[in-house]
Design a protein around this nucleic acid. Structure first.
Lengths: 137, 137
DNA sequence: ATGCTTGCAAAACATTTGCACGCAC
DNA sequence: GTGCGTGCAAATGTTTTGCAAGCAT
C-alpha cells in the first residue's frame, strides 16, 4: 500500500476536518499552517493517490476547479448557482434502484452514480429577496 | 442576441452532427476542416456564448476535460470507466420528483439536476472477457 | 539498503484575454 | 458607421512531472 508521511497524514486530517469540498489550493493553504514547507505538487500527488485508494473522491462541479472530499457514506451534491457553495445531500433521497433500471435498459455494468443538483441555496434566496427591494418602481 | 458568423455556425453544425460529447479540441479539429483559419480561442469563446444562451451544455466528467453538447432533450450520462466514452441515457429513467424531494427537505430552490452513472459499457465488457482468457491458470 | 515520498521548479495543459482588424448589422 | 466576432499570441490558472535528496520500511 501507501507509505505514511507527515504530509499525507496532514492532508487527510484537513480533509477530515471539513465538509466544504475544498479545492487543492485551499487544502495546500491549510496544510501549510502545520507544514509550511509542503509543496502544492505534493498535495496534488497525494490527492491522486488517495483517490486511487478510494479514500478521497474528486468532484468536478459544472464550473470551477476540482474539489475533493473524504469518502464517508456516499452522498449527492447541491451546487448553489449564486454563491458556488457545494452542499451534501443524503443519498437515501433517491432510490438505489435507479442503477438497476439503467443496467437493465443498457446492458452496461453500473458500479455507481452521482447526482448534482443545481439551484439557489437558502441563504442566497434571502439575499436575493433583500436585493429585490425597490427594484419594482 | 448573438451575431451570426461562419465560425459560430460551423461550431453549431459540428455539435449537431455528433453525440460523442466532444471536448473543445476535437470541435476545433472538425471545424478546421471547413474553416482552416479558425482559432482555438474562437471555439472556446463561442462555446462559452452558446452555453450562456442555453444552446449548449458543458459537462465535466469526473476525469478529463470539459465536454460539450447541444441541448436537445436533457439527458443523463453514463461514463465508461474503461474506455472513457460518455453515453446518453434517457432522463425519463428517473422520476423528476427527486427535485421536489430535495427542495422540500432542504428549503433550497432546485432548478435542475444531472446524474452521472459509472461502470463498464457493453463493448468493454466483451473485451474484458476476452482479456480474462487464461488468466485463471 | 531499497525505493517510495518530498520540495522545487519547470513543463504540460486547458482555458481566457488583449489587441488590431474585419465583417454583420 | 458602430461595435461584435475573429485570429493571433501572450497570459492565466490548474495540474503534472523530472530530479536529487530524504525518510519509511
Amino acid at each position: 500500500m501507501s507509505r505514511r508521511s507527515r504530509q499525507r497524514e496532514a492532508i487527510i486530517a484537513v480533509l477530515k476536518s471539513t465538509d466544504i469540498h475544498p479545492d487543492a489550493g485551499w487544502i495546500y493553504e491549510q496544510v501549510r499552517k502545520v507544514i509550511p514547507s509542503i509543496s502544492l505538487g505534493t498535495v496534488y500527488r497525494n490527492l491522486k493517490k488517495l483517490k486511487e485508494e478510494g479514500l478521497v473522491r474528486e468532484i468536478k462541479v459544472t464550473s470551477g476547479l476540482s474539489r475533493y472530499d473524504m469518502v464517508r457514506e456516499s452522498h449527492y451534491h447541491f451546487r448553489c448557482e449564486v454563491c458556488g457553495r457545494v452542499y451534501n445531500l443524503d443519498q437515501s433521497l433517491v432510490d438505489r434502484s435507479v442503477e438497476e433500471v439503467v443496467a437493465r435498459k443498457t446492458g452496461f455494468r453500473v458500479t455507481g452514480h452521482d447526482i448534482e443538483f443545481r439551484g439557489i441555496c437558502s441563504s442566497c434566496q434571502k439575499i436575493e429577496m433583500k436585493g429585490e427591494k425597490g427594484e419594482q418602481p
